[in-house]
Structure formats: structure tokens, C-alpha cells
Design a protein around this nucleic acid. Sequence first.
DNA 1: AGCACGCCGACT
DNA 2: GTCGGCGTGCTC
Length: 734
Amino acid sequence: MPDTRLLRVAMPVPLRRLFDYLAPPDCTDDALQPGCRVRVPFGKGRTLVGMIVERPTRSDVPQASLKRALAAPDDSPLVPPPHLGFLLRASAYYQHPVGDALFQCLPGNVRRGNDTRPATETLFRLPANAPAPAGNPGRAPRQHLAMQLLAGAPNGLTSRALADNGISHSVLASLLEKGLVEKIGRLRASDTTVSPGIEPVALNPHQQSVASNMTATLGGFVVHALHGVTGSGKTEVYLAVMAAALERGLQALVLVPEIGLTPQFIDRVRRRIGPELAVVHSGLGAKERAQSWMDARDGRVRVVLGTRSAVWTPLANPGVIVVDEEHDLSYKQQDGFRYSARDMAVVRARDHGIPVILGSATPSLETVRNVAAGRYTEQSLPQRAGTAPPPTVTFIDLRGAQLHGAISARLLDALRTNLEQGCQSLLFLNRRGYAPALHCHQCGTVLACPRCDMPYTWHKQARRLVCHHCSSERAAQSQCPACKDSELVQLGHGTERLEETLATLLPAARILRIDRDSTRARGAMGRMMARAHAGDADILVGTQMLAKGHHLPNLTLVGIVDADRGLYSADFRAAERMAQLFVQVSGRAGRGNLPGQVLIQTHHPEHPLLRSLVEQGYGPFARLALKEREDASLPPCSCMAVLRSEHYEQAPAVRFLELARTLLQKAGPQLQVFGPLPSALERRAGRFRMQLIVQASRRSQLAQILPPWLQQLEKEPLGNRVRWSIDVDPQDML
DNA sequence: AGCACGCCGACT
DNA sequence: GTCGGCGTGCTC
């Protein structure tokens, strides 16, 4: 009697469907549970590893075309079924091909290799009757530290855990040789004996009350929008709530933006949490990544800390999720599976029935709206940790003003005064390079990247023309390519030019430029910030790299060189981004005991959004900006998806979207459709990019209409010729 | 995505 | 005569 058991399998291919197979020969039911992998023949002559997502009782596929799977290597689900359900929902929400999404959410090793059985590990510990570690480090501080760490862990520590705490292999080797440490092997197993909180968390009264509000909600689904200005100590609150979860034997998941995962931050968490911390970052090797994933799944680590992809880490005993700097753009993946880690964190918290904390000084309008609607609870940390009063903010009206390069007379005066008083200043200009464009004085031709049709940015120091959209470069030229005239004029100002202008205007000032170009060398950023800290610079010039995280106590003046670019942009989120950046940059002014001032250069001092931001602060700005979105039916007051197409010729890209539009209007006449429109950067790296914008007033409309529409498009022959993708809740309209 | 099939141009 | 270019079609 042939085995007729059926499997429904997700395959790592960009197809919006599942594949049915017959069970492999000689296979127990245990190995066929949803969440187990199967090796199957796929297409012509290929064998791939897929994942079982269902055990159907019947199949719509004709009996004759059903193939038999080859093997099922896992004798229990590799992905716990509830977590599998979460991953499948995420792929459906973003309308991304199931199997592709699913496998992108798993560590690479799980995708291929079979080596996921519980591994044995080598542990290091102090021998049973070892003498107590010596009281002072003497000439071997690392060895001393190792002994102390081991003394605190009677069950032993892995070499990985030791390495994470700065104990290298060679230190262990010498300790082993002296017999001060012994090596044992055992099966990897969970160890719940380590107490949470190595260093206690000290909280001020505000932090204390917010933390206890949130701790009280452990065990139920709540979204806490933690609103705290820069320096108010959000991290301490996170740590306190996490510690409370850990005390109950639960795990915590912490998401940080890409630039937030600094060694300093990790150290800080590790000091409070101890060794049961898994840090997931892009530099991790495949093996380590898979190991952390399984450690979290099986409860061997209590805290998982990472950037956006860490949201897909399975947890044995979830207790709380933290999303730091919730408004940050890096939570949205911009290619492949285009998910938002922040939004998925909220979905996860609801699934698990646990609280999630969305922290920010400048919450996204999505969060502001959810707070206003009562879906999220707001927790505020009003105080700055220091005693400095908030900075004064003043507009400098650039209309008709005399400029020295990009600098107005008033800004120059302020810089000079500040310099004389021995204080530091910061000038913020979100454009690197010397000049954002070059054109010919004779014929007006703008030197542009041939693949993107965007002006080249002139980098004077490097003597190169750089396309900031596709990163292509070419050597400087002195002649106009069109009319062969040799007078090329520099248009606009970048940080490089600003630095040069300042050097001539204020020859006595020591100027430090901090942008992607000046900090390219390894460790350069750290060295520059150290110089700034040591008071070895009077004026810092930089891009948004300067906006975050650095405390410079002697910095009292912040100048925003060009506030206008965020006000009139093709991207409806530009103003929100601008405001978030301003608040962050302004937060740099006047820490310590010195009052700060912020000067904003603009041609539009009357602009209502800019005024509300400056005169009333981020909260009122956000409410006003939200009102504008409401009036224009833009997200978050509506639901948006963008279908993008790309081709080296324009016509097929347009035709595909026209076809898509026709099909969509038949399927869902209640949806609003705009386009096909060229994307704001119409051509990038030699390809034409077009987009079709789909808007609905309710999420459920999108969820209902998009799947059959996309399935139809997938069958369309034209769809095979152009490169296309769907982006649900797009963040970036360019 | 990958892989095969298929039909046209320049090579040992 | 065939090697190989990538357009087209298909994956239970």
C-alpha cells in the first residue's frame, strides 16, 4: 500500500504559492509536522529544501503531477508552529512570495545544512576545589577578569560567552595550562540559574513611575509609546522592564536601528543583563547566527538584541519587546521582503499577549495617530537628565539676505561670538561633497550621471564627480561635454564646501567635518568624536551622522544651514523626517550647564509646519502634520501599497503597470489608483523605474484585493520581462 | 530564482 | 558542422 500522506510545502522561490508533495519514504509523522524541513525534487533536475506548513487531507494538484519528497531531516519542528504562523502572516501582510519571505526570515544555515541538531558545547569552569581568585589583577588583568567571570558561573561558560566579555582564546589557553581552569563537554541545554541584572538599574522618579506602569502590564498585550526627549534616559527604563521580565523567567527582544548597535550600547546592556544575551548583527557568521537563533528558540538566552532582522528570532518564553528609536527608517527593509520590523514587533506582541515598548523622542506619525486613537498608551519622560534649560530656537530669514557661501551674516556672527567665548558650534547640512551640481556657464548643460539622469555631486578634494544615487564615479573634467567650453560653475553647497567657506571666514577656528566621506577609514568616526570631546575642535560640520547620540558638553550653538529641502518634496514624509532630524540635531545644543541656541536658516520662516515645530515643539508639529495627511488621505490616515516596475527600456515598464492598473480596477473599483508614474529618481543605475500607487481607506480592502491581483500578474508573460515588486506600507516614495 | 528548451550568429 | 547568446516558460 503506497504512502499517500500529503505535505504542503513553502519553497525558497519567488512564487506566490505553496507546493504539494507526497511524504518521503520511511518517514515518521513526527518528522512531517508543520515547521519541519523537507528535501524535495523541484522543477527539472533540482533538489531544494522547503518547509512544511500544512498537512492537507486532499490536494487540487492532479495525482499524476504530485512528486514524492526525498527526505525529512528534522524529527521535530525546527520552527515552532506558532512562530511559523507569525512568519506566514507577515509574508501575507506584505504580499511577498511565501517561501521566499519564510526563508529570508530564517538563518542561512537552516535553509541549507542539516546540522541543526542540539550541539554539544565546550564549557570552561573553575575546578571544584579551586582557590578563590586573587583580589587584585596584578600583571594579568585579562586572566583575572576571566577568573572572576567564571567564579560567578558555577556551571561554566562557553568560550563564546567569554569572548563576548573580552576573554580571548590565548588567555583561556594559559589558564588551562596552569590548571586554574578546566574544560568540560556537555549537551547544550538551557540554564536558568543565572540571576538577571548584574548591575542594578538606578532610576529617577519619572523613570521609576514609567517603568512600573509598564512592568504592571507584563503578561498582556499593550503597546507603550515611550516618549522621551534626548537624554531623558529611555534605555534605563527599557532595562528595568526587561529585568522585571527576566525575573519572571521570560525573555526580552530588543530592536535598535542600524547605527544604534554600537559597542558602547551593547556593553551597557551586557553589564545590566549579564552573559545570557545574544547580539544579532550583520557581521555575524552563518554558524553563530544559527546558534543564537536556536539558543533564543530554546530559551538558552534570555535577551536577544539586534537590528531589524532580529524581529524574526523565535522565543521560547517571550516577555517583552522593545523597539528603540521607533521612528527610524532602518526598521523598514527596502529590498526583497519589504517588511517593517517595528510593525511586525507589534503584531508579534499581540500574538504572544505581551507588552511592546516603542521608544522615541520624535515618534512616527503612525505611532502618534495610534496614541490619539487610544490603541497605544503613551508613557512620557519629560525631563532631560541634565539641568540645562532647553535651547532657544531662532529663524534666520534668508530671503534677500547677503550670504557668505551658504552662511548668512547672522549665523556667521553667532559662530564668531561662540568661538570667542571658547564654546563649540555644530553646523548641520545634510549633503556631502563640495557642490550638489556643476553646470556649464556657456550652455547651461548640467553634468549628470548617464545611468540615472541625476546631477553629479562634485567632490573637490577627491577631484571626482560622484553620483549619489548609484554611487558611480568619474574623474573630474574641465570642459563642458556639450559645447567644449571650459567654464564649469559649481551649484549649491555640500559639507566639503561649507568647511572651506568657514575656513576662510573664520581662519582661527579649528573645523572638523564629519560625513560619510571624511569618516570612511576604519575608526575615523571614533577618532573625530574623541577630538571633538577633547575640545580639540571649535566647529563641527556634518550630515545626519552628527545627529545622534554624542554628548558634547561644551557645544552651545547649532546651526541648521538649509531647512528648506524638507518642506517641498515629492515624498509626503519629507517634513516628518526633517522634523525628526531637527529635534535630534537641536538636542546636541547646550548640554551640561551651558544654555544652547539653535539657528535655522530658511527662505520660508512662515511655513506652518516649520513654525509649529519651532514655536511649539514636536508634539504639536506632529498633530498638524497628521491633520495634513488626513486631509490628503495619505498614510497613516489611509493604507498604501506601491507596485514598482523596472526595465532598461521605459515602454515595457509602463505597459506592465498599465496592465496591472486595468486588472486592479476590475478587481477592486473602490481602491484609488495613481499612475503609472515615473519614480522620483526616474532612472537609477541605467534602469527606468515606474510606479503604481494603490490606496485604500481600510486595511482589509488591501488584504482582500491584492492577493488575487498579484497572482494574476505573476501569470502575466509581460511580468516575466520586467522586474517588478510590491511594497506594502512604503516608507520611501523615491 | 534557477534551469531547460529553443532558435539565431561566429568559431575550432 | 557546433558552441553559446539570452528570450520564454515552468516549477507540486
